[in-house]
Design a protein around this nucleic acid. Structure first.
Lengths: 227, 227
DNA sequence: CGCTGACTTGAACGATGTGCAAGAGCCCTC
DNA sequence: GAGGGCTCTTGCACATCGTTCAAGTCAGCG
Protein backbone atom coordinates (compact mmCIF):
# COMPACT_ATOMS: atom_id res chain seq x y z
CA UNK A 1 0.00 0.00 0.00
CA UNK A 2 1.29 3.45 -0.87
CA UNK A 3 2.01 5.79 2.00
CA UNK A 4 -1.18 7.77 2.31
CA UNK A 5 -3.69 5.94 0.19
CA UNK A 6 -7.30 7.01 0.19
CA UNK A 7 -9.77 4.97 2.19
CA UNK A 8 -13.32 4.29 1.28
CA UNK A 9 -14.26 5.42 4.73
CA UNK A 10 -12.31 8.63 4.37
CA UNK A 11 -14.01 9.31 1.07
CA UNK A 12 -17.47 8.71 2.49
CA UNK A 13 -16.74 11.02 5.39
CA UNK A 14 -15.56 13.77 3.06
CA UNK A 15 -18.63 13.29 0.90
CA UNK A 16 -20.90 13.69 3.92
CA UNK A 17 -19.13 16.89 4.90
CA UNK A 18 -19.58 18.24 1.40
CA UNK A 19 -23.20 17.17 1.26
CA UNK A 20 -23.95 18.80 4.58
CA UNK A 21 -22.25 22.02 3.56
CA UNK A 22 -23.31 22.35 -0.04
CA UNK A 23 -26.32 20.12 -0.50
CA UNK A 24 -26.71 17.37 -2.98
CA UNK A 25 -26.18 19.54 -6.01
CA UNK A 26 -23.03 20.91 -4.39
CA UNK A 27 -21.38 17.51 -4.26
CA UNK A 28 -19.26 16.90 -7.32
CA UNK A 29 -16.33 14.69 -7.87
CA UNK A 30 -13.83 17.46 -8.51
CA UNK A 31 -14.70 19.26 -5.29
CA UNK A 32 -14.52 15.96 -3.46
CA UNK A 33 -11.10 15.31 -4.94
CA UNK A 34 -9.88 18.72 -3.84
CA UNK A 35 -11.07 18.10 -0.32
CA UNK A 36 -9.19 14.83 -0.29
CA UNK A 37 -6.07 16.35 -1.85
CA UNK A 38 -6.24 14.02 -4.77
CA UNK A 39 -7.41 13.91 -8.32
CA UNK A 40 -11.15 13.70 -8.75
CA UNK A 41 -10.87 10.44 -10.58
CA UNK A 42 -8.88 8.74 -7.83
CA UNK A 43 -12.16 8.21 -6.02
CA UNK A 44 -13.32 5.85 -8.74
CA UNK A 45 -10.90 3.23 -7.65
CA UNK A 46 -12.64 2.99 -4.27
CA UNK A 47 -16.23 3.59 -5.25
CA UNK A 48 -18.23 2.48 -8.24
CA UNK A 49 -19.75 5.84 -9.09
CA UNK A 50 -21.31 8.92 -7.60
CA UNK A 51 -24.70 7.35 -6.97
CA UNK A 52 -23.05 4.57 -5.09
CA UNK A 53 -21.05 7.00 -3.03
CA UNK A 54 -24.20 8.84 -2.05
CA UNK A 55 -25.77 5.57 -1.01
CA UNK A 56 -22.76 4.75 1.12
CA UNK A 57 -22.99 8.17 2.74
CA UNK A 58 -26.68 7.62 3.37
CA UNK A 59 -26.20 4.39 5.20
CA UNK A 60 -23.28 5.84 7.10
CA UNK A 61 -25.29 8.61 8.75
CA UNK A 62 -27.90 6.07 9.75
CA UNK A 63 -25.32 4.15 11.67
CA UNK A 64 -24.48 7.22 13.70
CA UNK A 65 -27.86 7.23 15.42
CA UNK A 66 -27.95 6.10 19.01
CA UNK A 67 -30.87 3.86 19.90
CA UNK A 68 -32.88 4.12 23.12
CA UNK A 69 -33.32 1.10 25.33
CA UNK A 70 -36.68 -0.37 24.32
CA UNK A 71 -37.20 -2.16 27.62
CA UNK A 72 -36.68 0.51 30.23
CA UNK A 73 -38.88 3.49 29.45
CA UNK A 74 -42.50 3.33 28.47
CA UNK A 75 -42.87 2.73 24.77
CA UNK A 76 -44.19 6.19 24.04
CA UNK A 77 -41.03 7.89 25.17
CA UNK A 78 -38.84 5.34 23.41
CA UNK A 79 -40.81 5.81 20.19
CA UNK A 80 -40.75 9.57 20.58
CA UNK A 81 -37.02 9.55 21.17
CA UNK A 82 -36.41 7.49 18.06
CA UNK A 83 -38.59 9.74 15.97
CA UNK A 84 -37.00 12.88 17.33
CA UNK A 85 -33.50 11.56 16.76
CA UNK A 86 -34.44 10.63 13.23
CA UNK A 87 -35.83 14.09 12.75
CA UNK A 88 -32.58 15.55 14.04
CA UNK A 89 -30.61 13.38 11.65
CA UNK A 90 -32.64 14.68 8.72
CA UNK A 91 -32.07 18.22 9.90
CA UNK A 92 -28.33 17.65 10.09
CA UNK A 93 -28.29 16.01 6.67
CA UNK A 94 -31.05 17.56 4.59
CA UNK A 95 -29.86 15.87 1.40
CA UNK A 96 -31.03 12.56 2.84
CA UNK A 97 -34.63 13.21 1.87
CA UNK A 98 -33.71 13.67 -1.74
CA UNK A 99 -31.69 10.49 -1.71
CA UNK A 100 -34.52 8.50 -0.14
CA UNK A 101 -36.97 9.83 -2.72
CA UNK A 102 -34.69 8.82 -5.57
CA UNK A 103 -33.30 5.44 -4.47
CA UNK A 104 -34.54 2.45 -2.60
CA UNK A 105 -32.03 2.34 0.22
CA UNK A 106 -31.33 -0.67 2.33
CA UNK A 107 -28.04 -1.01 4.15
CA UNK A 108 -26.62 -2.05 7.47
CA UNK A 109 -27.41 1.23 9.20
CA UNK A 110 -31.02 1.35 8.18
CA UNK A 111 -31.53 -2.33 9.00
CA UNK A 112 -30.20 -1.74 12.49
CA UNK A 113 -32.51 1.21 12.96
CA UNK A 114 -35.57 -0.57 11.60
CA UNK A 115 -34.99 -3.58 13.76
CA UNK A 116 -34.75 -1.41 16.80
CA UNK A 117 -37.91 0.42 15.95
CA UNK A 118 -39.73 -2.88 15.64
CA UNK A 119 -38.29 -3.86 19.00
CA UNK A 120 -39.74 -0.77 20.62
CA UNK A 121 -43.24 -1.43 19.36
CA UNK A 122 -43.13 -5.14 20.03
CA UNK A 123 -41.94 -4.52 23.56
CA UNK A 124 -44.97 -2.29 23.94
CA UNK A 125 -47.22 -5.23 23.16
CA UNK A 126 -47.89 -4.61 19.48
CA UNK A 127 -48.09 -7.70 17.31
CA UNK A 128 -45.33 -7.97 14.77
CA UNK A 129 -47.73 -6.89 12.08
CA UNK A 130 -48.81 -3.88 14.08
CA UNK A 131 -45.19 -3.07 14.84
CA UNK A 132 -44.52 -3.06 11.10
CA UNK A 133 -47.29 -0.60 10.50
CA UNK A 134 -46.32 1.60 13.38
CA UNK A 135 -42.69 1.68 12.31
CA UNK A 136 -43.64 2.52 8.76
CA UNK A 137 -46.15 5.18 9.74
CA UNK A 138 -43.82 6.98 12.12
CA UNK A 139 -40.91 6.80 9.73
CA UNK A 140 -43.09 8.13 6.96
CA UNK A 141 -44.25 11.02 9.06
CA UNK A 142 -40.74 11.99 10.08
CA UNK A 143 -39.53 11.74 6.50
CA UNK A 144 -42.32 13.94 5.25
CA UNK A 145 -41.44 16.49 7.83
CA UNK A 146 -37.84 16.38 6.73
CA UNK A 147 -38.80 17.41 3.22
CA UNK A 148 -39.86 20.79 4.51
CA UNK A 149 -36.67 21.10 6.50
CA UNK A 150 -34.61 20.19 3.47
CA UNK A 151 -36.35 22.73 1.28
CA UNK A 152 -35.66 25.42 3.84
CA UNK A 153 -32.03 24.41 4.17
CA UNK A 154 -31.65 24.66 0.42
CA UNK A 155 -33.24 28.10 0.43
CA UNK A 156 -30.94 29.31 3.19
CA UNK A 157 -27.92 28.07 1.33
CA UNK A 158 -29.01 30.01 -1.72
CA UNK A 159 -29.45 33.12 0.41
CA UNK A 160 -25.96 32.78 1.80
CA UNK A 161 -24.29 32.17 -1.52
CA UNK A 162 -26.03 34.52 -3.89
CA UNK A 163 -26.23 38.16 -2.80
CA UNK A 164 -29.05 38.84 -5.26
CA UNK A 165 -31.18 36.04 -3.83
CA UNK A 166 -32.48 38.10 -0.95
CA UNK A 167 -34.14 40.52 -3.34
CA UNK A 168 -35.66 37.68 -5.33
CA UNK A 169 -36.95 36.03 -2.19
CA UNK A 170 -38.68 39.22 -1.18
CA UNK A 171 -40.37 39.36 -4.56
CA UNK A 172 -41.39 35.72 -4.32
CA UNK A 173 -42.79 36.25 -0.85
CA UNK A 174 -44.79 39.22 -1.99
CA UNK A 175 -46.22 37.22 -4.84
CA UNK A 176 -47.05 34.36 -2.47
CA UNK A 177 -48.71 36.82 -0.15
CA UNK A 178 -50.75 38.19 -2.98
CA UNK A 179 -51.88 34.72 -3.98
CA UNK A 180 -52.77 33.87 -0.40
CA UNK A 181 -54.90 36.98 -0.15
CA UNK A 182 -57.21 35.44 -2.71
CA UNK A 183 -58.12 32.59 -0.37
CA UNK A 184 -60.17 33.40 2.72
CA UNK A 185 -58.51 31.12 5.23
CA UNK A 186 -54.99 31.92 4.11
CA UNK A 187 -55.81 35.60 4.15
CA UNK A 188 -57.16 35.33 7.68
CA UNK A 189 -53.86 33.85 8.77
CA UNK A 190 -51.86 36.60 7.14
CA UNK A 191 -53.98 39.24 8.82
CA UNK A 192 -53.71 37.74 12.27
CA UNK A 193 -50.86 39.09 14.39
CA UNK A 194 -49.96 35.45 15.00
CA UNK A 195 -48.96 35.23 11.35
CA UNK A 196 -45.31 35.79 12.20
CA UNK A 197 -45.42 33.06 14.81
CA UNK A 198 -47.25 30.73 12.50
CA UNK A 199 -44.47 30.46 9.98
CA UNK A 200 -41.81 30.27 12.65
CA UNK A 201 -43.11 27.29 14.58
CA UNK A 202 -42.76 24.16 12.49
CA UNK A 203 -41.26 22.34 15.46
CA UNK A 204 -44.45 22.48 17.42
CA UNK A 205 -46.22 21.09 14.39
CA UNK A 206 -43.83 18.18 14.23
CA UNK A 207 -44.43 17.31 17.84
CA UNK A 208 -48.17 17.69 17.64
CA UNK A 209 -48.45 15.52 14.56
CA UNK A 210 -46.19 12.89 16.00
CA UNK A 211 -48.13 12.84 19.24
CA UNK A 212 -51.39 12.53 17.39
CA UNK A 213 -50.05 9.72 15.26
CA UNK A 214 -48.83 7.79 18.28
CA UNK A 215 -52.15 8.38 20.03
CA UNK A 216 -53.93 6.99 17.02
CA UNK A 217 -51.71 3.94 16.83
CA UNK A 218 -52.13 3.26 20.52
CA UNK A 219 -55.87 3.46 20.24
CA UNK A 220 -56.08 1.49 17.03
CA UNK A 221 -53.93 -1.41 18.22
CA UNK A 222 -55.19 -2.60 21.60
CA UNK A 223 -52.11 -3.92 23.30
CA UNK A 224 -51.53 -6.67 25.75
CA UNK A 225 -48.35 -5.39 27.37
CA UNK A 226 -45.57 -7.94 27.72
CA UNK A 227 -45.28 -9.33 31.26
CA UNK B 1 -47.30 36.50 -33.03
CA UNK B 2 -45.76 33.95 -35.37
CA UNK B 3 -47.98 31.14 -36.58
CA UNK B 4 -47.24 28.34 -34.19
CA UNK B 5 -45.35 30.01 -31.39
CA UNK B 6 -44.60 28.06 -28.25
CA UNK B 7 -46.76 28.71 -25.23
CA UNK B 8 -45.65 28.68 -21.67
CA UNK B 9 -48.54 26.38 -20.96
CA UNK B 10 -47.58 24.04 -23.76
CA UNK B 11 -44.03 23.92 -22.46
CA UNK B 12 -45.13 23.17 -18.94
CA UNK B 13 -47.38 20.39 -20.16
CA UNK B 14 -44.57 18.85 -22.18
CA UNK B 15 -42.26 19.12 -19.19
CA UNK B 16 -44.77 17.29 -17.01
CA UNK B 17 -45.06 14.51 -19.57
CA UNK B 18 -41.32 14.16 -19.68
CA UNK B 19 -41.03 14.24 -15.92
CA UNK B 20 -43.69 11.58 -15.52
CA UNK B 21 -42.07 9.36 -18.09
CA UNK B 22 -38.42 9.82 -17.33
CA UNK B 23 -38.19 11.20 -13.84
CA UNK B 24 -36.49 14.35 -12.78
CA UNK B 25 -33.08 13.37 -14.03
CA UNK B 26 -34.64 12.47 -17.38
CA UNK B 27 -35.85 16.00 -17.97
CA UNK B 28 -33.34 17.99 -19.95
CA UNK B 29 -33.74 20.97 -22.17
CA UNK B 30 -32.69 19.26 -25.37
CA UNK B 31 -35.17 16.44 -24.92
CA UNK B 32 -37.83 18.98 -24.07
CA UNK B 33 -37.00 20.93 -27.22
CA UNK B 34 -37.28 17.80 -29.31
CA UNK B 35 -40.70 17.01 -27.87
CA UNK B 36 -41.81 20.52 -28.72
CA UNK B 37 -40.28 20.42 -32.21
CA UNK B 38 -38.10 23.36 -31.48
CA UNK B 39 -34.60 24.19 -30.46
CA UNK B 40 -33.79 23.53 -26.83
CA UNK B 41 -32.97 27.14 -26.22
CA UNK B 42 -36.30 28.40 -27.54
CA UNK B 43 -37.77 27.49 -24.19
CA UNK B 44 -35.67 30.14 -22.51
CA UNK B 45 -37.71 32.88 -24.02
CA UNK B 46 -40.79 31.64 -22.16
CA UNK B 47 -39.25 30.44 -18.94
CA UNK B 48 -36.42 31.82 -16.85
CA UNK B 49 -34.53 28.56 -16.40
CA UNK B 50 -34.95 24.89 -15.73
CA UNK B 51 -35.56 25.25 -12.02
CA UNK B 52 -38.29 27.70 -12.73
CA UNK B 53 -39.87 25.40 -15.26
CA UNK B 54 -39.94 22.60 -12.72
CA UNK B 55 -41.61 24.91 -10.24
CA UNK B 56 -44.24 25.84 -12.80
CA UNK B 57 -44.85 22.17 -13.48
CA UNK B 58 -45.15 21.53 -9.77
CA UNK B 59 -47.81 24.10 -9.23
CA UNK B 60 -49.61 22.98 -12.37
CA UNK B 61 -50.21 19.44 -11.16
CA UNK B 62 -51.53 20.82 -7.91
CA UNK B 63 -54.18 22.73 -9.77
CA UNK B 64 -55.43 19.52 -11.36
CA UNK B 65 -56.66 18.14 -8.05
CA UNK B 66 -60.39 18.14 -7.48
CA UNK B 67 -61.47 19.20 -4.03
CA UNK B 68 -64.24 17.52 -2.02
CA UNK B 69 -67.10 19.56 -0.63
CA UNK B 70 -66.11 20.32 2.95
CA UNK B 71 -69.67 20.87 4.10
CA UNK B 72 -71.52 17.81 2.96
CA UNK B 73 -69.76 14.70 4.18
CA UNK B 74 -68.42 14.17 7.64
CA UNK B 75 -65.00 15.68 8.03
CA UNK B 76 -63.22 12.35 8.25
CA UNK B 77 -64.23 11.31 4.82
CA UNK B 78 -63.47 14.74 3.35
CA UNK B 79 -60.04 14.71 4.96
CA UNK B 80 -59.43 11.14 3.85
CA UNK B 81 -60.46 11.98 0.32
CA UNK B 82 -58.10 14.91 0.18
CA UNK B 83 -55.23 12.87 1.55
CA UNK B 84 -55.92 10.00 -0.81
CA UNK B 85 -56.13 12.29 -3.81
CA UNK B 86 -52.88 13.91 -2.80
CA UNK B 87 -51.34 10.50 -2.48
CA UNK B 88 -52.58 9.63 -5.95
CA UNK B 89 -51.09 12.82 -7.32
CA UNK B 90 -47.71 11.93 -5.86
CA UNK B 91 -47.99 8.48 -7.36
CA UNK B 92 -48.76 9.94 -10.78
CA UNK B 93 -45.91 12.43 -10.48
CA UNK B 94 -43.19 10.87 -8.37
CA UNK B 95 -40.71 13.64 -9.16
CA UNK B 96 -42.82 15.99 -7.03
CA UNK B 97 -41.29 14.72 -3.83
CA UNK B 98 -37.82 15.56 -5.00
CA UNK B 99 -38.93 19.02 -6.02
CA UNK B 100 -40.60 19.67 -2.68
CA UNK B 101 -37.50 18.54 -0.83
CA UNK B 102 -35.30 20.88 -2.85
CA UNK B 103 -37.41 24.04 -3.16
CA UNK B 104 -39.84 25.95 -1.02
CA UNK B 105 -42.87 25.91 -3.27
CA UNK B 106 -45.77 28.26 -2.99
CA UNK B 107 -48.01 28.92 -5.96
CA UNK B 108 -51.62 29.30 -6.90
CA UNK B 109 -52.34 25.58 -7.01
CA UNK B 110 -50.89 24.82 -3.63
CA UNK B 111 -52.57 27.83 -2.06
CA UNK B 112 -55.93 26.64 -3.35
CA UNK B 113 -55.33 23.19 -1.97
CA UNK B 114 -54.12 24.42 1.41
CA UNK B 115 -57.04 26.72 1.80
CA UNK B 116 -59.42 23.92 1.08
CA UNK B 117 -57.73 21.64 3.55
CA UNK B 118 -58.09 24.31 6.21
CA UNK B 119 -61.73 24.63 5.26
CA UNK B 120 -62.30 20.93 5.83
CA UNK B 121 -60.83 20.97 9.31
CA UNK B 122 -62.45 24.23 10.29
CA UNK B 123 -65.83 22.96 9.14
CA UNK B 124 -65.24 20.01 11.42
CA UNK B 125 -64.97 22.33 14.36
CA UNK B 126 -61.21 22.66 14.69
CA UNK B 127 -59.94 26.09 15.67
CA UNK B 128 -57.91 27.78 12.97
CA UNK B 129 -54.76 26.92 14.86
CA UNK B 130 -55.76 23.29 15.11
CA UNK B 131 -56.71 23.27 11.45
CA UNK B 132 -53.21 24.49 10.65
CA UNK B 133 -51.66 21.70 12.58
CA UNK B 134 -53.95 19.08 11.16
CA UNK B 135 -53.35 20.27 7.60
CA UNK B 136 -49.61 20.27 8.13
CA UNK B 137 -49.55 16.87 9.82
CA UNK B 138 -51.63 15.14 7.19
CA UNK B 139 -49.74 16.73 4.33
CA UNK B 140 -46.49 15.73 5.93
CA UNK B 141 -47.60 12.17 6.31
CA UNK B 142 -48.74 11.90 2.72
CA UNK B 143 -45.53 13.46 1.48
CA UNK B 144 -43.41 11.08 3.48
CA UNK B 145 -45.33 8.21 2.02
CA UNK B 146 -44.72 9.56 -1.44
CA UNK B 147 -40.98 9.39 -0.96
CA UNK B 148 -41.20 5.61 -0.86
CA UNK B 149 -43.41 5.60 -3.91
CA UNK B 150 -41.00 7.84 -5.76
CA UNK B 151 -38.02 5.67 -4.91
CA UNK B 152 -39.85 2.64 -6.23
CA UNK B 153 -40.86 4.43 -9.40
CA UNK B 154 -37.26 5.37 -10.01
CA UNK B 155 -36.19 1.78 -9.48
CA UNK B 156 -38.79 0.48 -11.89
CA UNK B 157 -37.69 2.95 -14.50
CA UNK B 158 -34.13 1.74 -14.15
CA UNK B 159 -35.31 -1.84 -14.54
CA UNK B 160 -37.14 -1.00 -17.73
CA UNK B 161 -34.33 0.97 -19.27
CA UNK B 162 -31.23 -0.97 -18.38
CA UNK B 163 -31.32 -4.68 -19.19
CA UNK B 164 -28.45 -5.36 -16.80
CA UNK B 165 -30.29 -3.76 -13.91
CA UNK B 166 -32.35 -6.83 -13.11
CA UNK B 167 -29.25 -8.82 -12.32
CA UNK B 168 -27.88 -6.03 -10.13
CA UNK B 169 -31.17 -5.77 -8.30
CA UNK B 170 -31.11 -9.45 -7.52
CA UNK B 171 -27.62 -9.05 -6.08
CA UNK B 172 -28.68 -6.05 -4.05
CA UNK B 173 -31.70 -7.88 -2.72
CA UNK B 174 -29.59 -10.81 -1.70
CA UNK B 175 -27.21 -8.53 0.12
CA UNK B 176 -30.12 -6.78 1.81
CA UNK B 177 -31.49 -10.14 2.81
CA UNK B 178 -28.17 -11.13 4.26
CA UNK B 179 -27.99 -7.95 6.28
CA UNK B 180 -31.54 -8.41 7.53
CA UNK B 181 -30.71 -11.92 8.69
CA UNK B 182 -28.36 -10.38 11.23
CA UNK B 183 -31.23 -8.68 13.04
CA UNK B 184 -33.73 -10.82 14.91
CA UNK B 185 -36.94 -9.01 14.08
CA UNK B 186 -36.08 -8.49 10.44
CA UNK B 187 -35.07 -12.12 10.17
CA UNK B 188 -38.35 -13.23 11.69
CA UNK B 189 -40.18 -11.31 9.00
CA UNK B 190 -38.15 -12.87 6.24
CA UNK B 191 -38.80 -16.33 7.58
CA UNK B 192 -42.52 -15.86 7.90
CA UNK B 193 -44.57 -16.97 4.91
CA UNK B 194 -46.23 -13.57 5.09
CA UNK B 195 -42.91 -12.04 4.01
CA UNK B 196 -44.02 -11.82 0.41
CA UNK B 197 -47.21 -10.07 1.41
CA UNK B 198 -45.37 -7.75 3.72
CA UNK B 199 -43.36 -6.06 1.00
CA UNK B 200 -46.30 -5.94 -1.38
CA UNK B 201 -48.76 -4.08 0.81
CA UNK B 202 -47.62 -0.52 1.29
CA UNK B 203 -51.12 0.71 0.50
CA UNK B 204 -52.57 -0.81 3.59
CA UNK B 205 -49.80 0.86 5.54
CA UNK B 206 -50.72 4.21 4.08
CA UNK B 207 -54.33 3.83 5.07
CA UNK B 208 -53.57 2.55 8.53
CA UNK B 209 -51.16 5.35 9.28
CA UNK B 210 -53.51 7.97 7.91
CA UNK B 211 -56.39 6.58 9.93
CA UNK B 212 -54.30 6.53 13.06
CA UNK B 213 -53.17 10.08 12.48
CA UNK B 214 -56.72 11.32 12.01
CA UNK B 215 -57.83 9.41 15.09
CA UNK B 216 -55.10 11.08 17.04
CA UNK B 217 -55.99 14.53 15.78
CA UNK B 218 -59.64 14.00 16.55
CA UNK B 219 -58.86 12.91 20.04
CA UNK B 220 -56.29 15.58 20.67
CA UNK B 221 -58.42 18.49 19.51
CA UNK B 222 -61.82 18.30 21.21
CA UNK B 223 -64.16 19.86 18.69
CA UNK B 224 -67.29 21.86 19.06
CA UNK B 225 -68.88 21.04 15.71
CA UNK B 226 -70.22 24.00 13.79
CA UNK B 227 -74.02 24.23 14.16
C1' DC C 1 17.19 -5.06 -9.05
C1' DG C 2 13.11 -5.70 -11.35
C1' DC C 3 8.38 -7.40 -11.27
C1' DT C 4 3.72 -7.29 -9.75
C1' DG C 5 -0.18 -5.40 -8.04
C1' DA C 6 -2.22 -1.59 -5.65
C1' DC C 7 -3.33 2.97 -6.28
C1' DT C 8 -3.08 7.80 -8.67
C1' DT C 9 -3.02 11.01 -12.36
C1' DG C 10 -4.19 13.85 -16.54
C1' DA C 11 -6.21 14.11 -20.66
C1' DA C 12 -10.27 13.39 -22.93
C1' DC C 13 -15.30 12.47 -24.21
C1' DG C 14 -20.14 13.04 -23.96
C1' DA C 15 -24.02 15.08 -21.67
C1' DT C 16 -26.06 19.04 -19.87
C1' DG C 17 -27.63 24.11 -18.59
C1' DT C 18 -27.49 28.42 -20.44
C1' DG C 19 -25.85 33.14 -22.78
C1' DC C 20 -25.64 35.51 -26.99
C1' DA C 21 -25.80 37.26 -31.51
C1' DA C 22 -28.00 36.58 -35.53
C1' DG C 23 -32.02 35.29 -37.94
C1' DA C 24 -37.12 34.61 -39.17
C1' DG C 25 -41.81 35.70 -39.22
C1' DC C 26 -45.52 38.77 -38.43
C1' DC C 27 -47.81 43.35 -38.07
C1' DC C 28 -48.10 48.19 -38.38
C1' DT C 29 -47.10 52.48 -40.57
C1' DC C 30 -45.84 55.51 -44.22
C1' DG D 1 -45.39 47.51 -50.84
C1' DA D 2 -41.19 48.78 -48.50
C1' DG D 3 -39.25 49.32 -44.36
C1' DG D 4 -39.00 49.16 -39.33
C1' DG D 5 -39.78 47.05 -35.09
C1' DC D 6 -41.83 43.66 -32.32
C1' DT D 7 -41.91 38.77 -30.84
C1' DC D 8 -40.01 34.59 -31.00
C1' DT D 9 -36.51 30.97 -32.80
C1' DT D 10 -32.09 29.15 -33.97
C1' DG D 11 -27.15 27.65 -33.84
C1' DC D 12 -23.08 28.18 -31.80
C1' DA D 13 -20.35 28.38 -27.99
C1' DC D 14 -18.82 27.85 -23.25
C1' DA D 15 -18.56 26.11 -18.64
C1' DT D 16 -19.49 22.33 -15.63
C1' DC D 17 -20.03 17.73 -14.62
C1' DG D 18 -19.66 12.33 -14.49
C1' DT D 19 -16.84 8.97 -16.07
C1' DT D 20 -13.29 6.14 -18.97
C1' DC D 21 -8.80 4.94 -20.02
C1' DA D 22 -4.05 4.55 -20.76
C1' DA D 23 -0.15 5.76 -18.59
C1' DG D 24 2.18 6.74 -14.56
C1' DT D 25 3.94 6.03 -9.53
C1' DC D 26 5.00 3.62 -5.60
C1' DA D 27 5.58 -0.22 -2.04
C1' DG D 28 7.11 -4.49 -1.12
C1' DC D 29 8.46 -9.20 -2.48
C1' DG D 30 11.31 -12.39 -5.04
Amino acid sequence: MPRDALTRDQIVRAAIELLDAEGIEGLNMRALGKRLNSAATAVYWHVKNKDNLVLLATDRVWSDLTLPDPAVDDWRSAATTMATDLHAMFTRHPWLVQVLAAHVVYGEGKARHDDHSLAVYEAAGFTSDQADQATAAVFTYVLGNAAGTAANASLNRKLNEDPAAEEQLKDAMNKAREIAMGYPRLRARLETPAAATYAAAPDRTFETGLGALLDGLEQRFPRTPKQ
